[in-house]
């Protein structure tokens, strides 16, 4: 693929990846959040496939397709099912209001940019230069995890972090070795499943999935 088309397409994929990540902060509707997560998975898969095409690496393209199936297909499907079973559609009241969270996300983007400098300096290719995008999504995922009070929002936060790490892996080194990648994907899938089962139990035990209810254990 020609360099002239590769760089804009890569940037576009990373832009979509970032946008889907920060829009999660904006929306209160959990179904929409899951949709955004699926969109982000697609953007990630597109970036990986693009890297594979650019390097003419069939294995990387196949891995990209696999990433897409897991992160844009399977995980969102699981979350939609959990959501349909729960009947809880909205994030009630996040600990930090939406306007402030968006401004915090802006600050986090700056932080990610600063932190990623040594990584870029080591090898300033177009792909490595997009690493701050992945780190921004990582920090946004953390922020979602800490400030949202629905169980499903926390799961999304965790998966955002995971997407971001996968993106970093592909942008810096075109991915970790296949056996590790498979293990990681399996772990993530199982973790999501475990969290889904725990959500069901939580609803049975607490009558809801508001994490503020989790106050039984303390010193």
């Amino acid at each position: 693929m020609s360099e002239g088309l590769y760089v804009p397409l890569l940037d576009l994929g990373c832009g979509a990846f970032l946008l889907a990540g920060v829009l999660v902060l904006w929306r209160r509707d959990l179904m929409a959040i899951v949709g955004l997560f699926a969109l982000q998975g697609m953007a990630l898969a597109a970036v990986v496939v693009l890297l594979g095409v650019h390097q003419a690496d069939a294995e990387l393209i196949a891995v990209g397709v696999g990433v897409g199936v897991l992160r844009a297909g399977l995980l969102p499907y699981l979350m939609r099912r959990a959501l349909a079973a729960s009947g809880e559609g909205r994030e009630t009241q996040p600990l930090v209001n939406v306007a402030t969270s968006l401004l915090v996300a802006a600050a986090l983007a700056m932080l990610a940019y600063a932190v990623a400098q040594p990584l870029i300096r080591l090898s300033p290719t177009p792909a490595t230069q997009a690493v701050p995008v992945a780190l921004t999504v990582l920090l946004v995922g953390f922020f979602v995890l800490v400030t949202r009070r629905r169980a499903l929002s926390q799961v999304v936060g965790f998966l955002l972090i995971d997407n971001a790490i996968t993106a970093t892996a592909f942008l810096t080194t075109s991915g970790v070795p296949l056996v590790v990648e498979l293990g990681v994907s399996l772990d993530v899938l199982l973790a999501a499943l475990v969290l889904q089962v725990l959500t069901t139990r939580m609803r049975a035990a607490f009558g809801g999935t508001d994490l503020d209810e989790l106050r039984e254990l303390h010193d």
Partner: peptide
């Protein structure tokens, strides 16, 4: 309204950062 405008500010800021790091 401030939410929407904060969102647009975030986008603008991302545009700036993207213009630097991409």
């Amino acid at each position: 309204v401030p939410e929407l405008l904060a969102g647009s500010f975030l986008m603008a800021l991302l545009a700036v950062s993207a213009s630097f790091f991409l």
